Simulated scan of single mutants.
Amino acid sequence: MDKAFLENLLAFDARPDSVQLRKRSFELLEAGPGRRVADVGCGAGTAVAELAAAGADAVGVDAAEEAVAFARERHPGLRFELGDAAKLPFPDESLDGYRAEKLYHALDDPGGACAEAHRVLAPGGRIVLLGQDWDLFVIDSDDPALTRTIMTAAADELPHGRVARHYRALLLDTGFTDVSCEVHTPVLDPALAMFVVNRLATGAVRTGAVSQAEADGWLAEQRGRAERDRLFVALPLFLAAGRRPVTPS
């Protein structure tokens, strides 16, 4: 996780729709004064800072040393720890809230991470998962078939590129109750949209799904759209929430 990626993450986090979606996730988390909450896969630490500002006893956890260092630099005085989503540095039943955003698609075992969330949550504690399905980007293009091939290849390259559509089932299978699921679809601004299409094309070439020439042609079309103010990239984000039962289910 390099600094350029973290800077792009900050740009996405600063969007008004991203701010509103985080607020919605905090509502579902029932975050508030004195609530012990962890943001797992905390990245640059934006959500941790906002949770702390709302009075929560918040801690960020990330497996990337660069992310933890970056978050500590941006938010001195807040808690950020290096840790694995499959083995969190918290005792059993020690948290009131667990939040993971744009994380589970990168994990080898999302089910194991969800079980770990269940372990660290106290009875009645809340879990919130937020993230994109990498096979469901909405991209306007003159070549829909090639666009679909590129998106599918990018999703296939990730450990679990389609896990977001499975969030609801994952929470239910892990034993959470009061499970809900929402879908929010922001339209990306040109700079972020080009960052996304470049990343998708690069991944598709890396997997061998398309040639470099095909990717270059597709990207040239997307750049032309951007120059004419015709670029369109939308990103469905899935927001699922649940509660650890007070009594065994």
Rank of each mutant, 00 (worst) to 15 (best):
P16V: 11
E7Q: 14
P76F: 01
L235Y: 09
G224D: 12
F26C: 08
T147K: 02
Q132M: 14
A58T: 00
P16L: 09
L82C: 03
A56L: 01
N8E: 09
R148E: 15
T247D: 07
M1I: 10
K3A: 13
D173R: 06
E93R: 02
A31T: 08
A58F: 04
N8W: 13
A153E: 02
A11C: 07
T177F: 11
R168E: 10
L82H: 03
G34F: 14
L146N: 02
H184V: 15
D2E: 08
M151N: 03
V205Y: 05
L78H: 00
D189C: 14
D96T: 01
V233T: 07
A154G: 05
A113P: 05
R230E: 15
T247C: 06
A191T: 14
R168F: 11
A220Y: 06
A117E: 08
V187G: 11
A220F: 05
F137T: 02
V68S: 00
R36G: 11
H118K: 15
R35G: 03
M151G: 02
R74C: 04
R79Q: 04
V233Q: 03
L103E: 03
G224M: 11
G224P: 10
G77A: 03
W218T: 08
P190T: 06
A115Q: 15
A53C: 07
G224H: 09
D143A: 10
A54S: 10
T207K: 04
L28R: 13
S25Y: 08
V48F: 05
P91I: 01
Y104K: 03
R162Q: 03
A122I: 14
T247H: 13
H166K: 08
V163F: 03
L172K: 04
I139Y: 04
N198S: 14
A201M: 06
L136T: 13
A71I: 01
F195N: 15
H118N: 07
L103M: 06
